[in-house]
């Protein structure tokens, strides 16, 4: 299911193809462009054009009330963003959020995939149920999480109290120390099933005979995992880390609806900061600058990540 090798496309100028192409007027060298054009034009209009617009905003003073009335201010927005201490906190929160989400989601995903791998009764049902959190809409997840974490009536507080771990005042989402962990747990809960399902598919590629041979040779479960399983699923793990990184940097609804970045900015990720700067402080120029800085950071992270994973692959194949 998860193919990592890049398939080499057939050469279009084979004798065979060239003959046919001459016959039909539509089957010319323009054919692929005609097929690709609608989607490409669509994305240029609704993604590239707004992105350029946003880039332009970042060099202007623009209010949400008058988005077409911009005053060019050069790098002022960037300087004020980078110089502010709240932005440093935002970057820190974002890094913690992304790293913990990625490690947590991929880790729990791998753990549950190993649990669900192999033969047992009810496996199909178990796999299906495990995917539920991933399918639930973020808005609904935020609603139920907020209710479960409610200070007075939330089931989490009641259970914590029952085992003697009661939180003072029951404050979780309202507490600077506990809001981010609570949001992290919720996010990982939402993300891990996807990792689990993808990892399960990858585990089907692990040669069972080799595992059994390793066990017979006296390899413990950990050793046989490291030597036999890990090399097979490694590319999938890399891919999941990449996807989870992108998704975590982008994540908005869950955090916004649960805490709006508070209390005192402890859950204020770049995307939340970008939105609240634009829609609560009405400062579109600064919001755009935050967004651009975030975009550059995530591009660097993703490119570096791919580079590292390619290098690792080469090392392995050598």
């Amino acid at each position: 299911m998860v193919t990592v090798s890049t398939r080499v496309d057939g050469d279009p100028s084979t004798r065979h193809g060239a003959e046919k192409r001459r016959k039909s007027p539509l089957g010319s060298r323009w054919t692929p462009y005609l097929f690709a054009a609608p989607a490409v034009i669509y994305l240029v209009v609704f993604q590239a054009f707004p992105l350029i617009q946003e880039l332009r905003f970042s060099f202007t003073r623009t209010s949400l009330y008058t988005p077409n009335d911009n005053v060019w201010v050069g790098l002022a927005n960037y300087l004020s963003v980078i110089g502010s201490s709240t932005f440093h906190q935002t970057v820190q929160v974002t890094i913690v959020y992304v790293v913990v989400c990625v490690v947590g989601a991929v880790g729990v995903g791998l753990g549950t995939a190993l649990l669900l791998n192999g033969e047992f009764r009810g496996r199909g049902v178990a796999r299906a149920l495990m995917a539920i959190p991933w399918a639930a809409p973020a808005v609904a997840v935020a609603l139920i999480a907020t209710w479960m974490l409610n200070a007075q009536y939330g089931v989490v507080n009641r259970l914590l109290a029952a085992v003697g771990l009661a939180v003072p005042g029951g404050l979780i989402l309202e507490s600077p120390g506990r809001a981010l962990p609570a949001i992290l747990v919720t996010t990982i809960w939402e993300l891990f099933p996807f990792c689990s399902v993808v990892m399960l598919a990858a585990l089907q590629g692990v040669p069972q005979e080799v595992r059994e041979a390793a066990t017979m040779d006296g390899a413990g479960p950990w050793w046989s995992f490291r030597v036999v399983t890990w090399p097979v699923i490694r590319p999938t793990v890399d891919l999941l880390v990449l996807l989870m990184t992108i998704w975590s940097i982008r994540r908005f609804e869950l955090i916004w609806l649960m805490t709006q970045g508070g209390p005192v900015g402890t859950t204020n990720t770049l995307v939340i900061d970008l939105y609240s700067t634009g829609f609560q402080l009405f400062d579109l120029g600064k919001a755009a600058a935050i967004g651009m800085v975030g975009l550059v950071v995530s591009l660097v992270v993703v490119i570096a990540g791919r580079f590292v994973s390619r290098r690792a692959e080469q090392e392995v194949s050598r």
Partner: peptide, 13 residues
Amino acid sequence: MLPEALLVVPLFA
């Protein structure tokens, strides 16, 4: 990689 929150303003305009 583009967050919705990044493009929501230019798209709104």
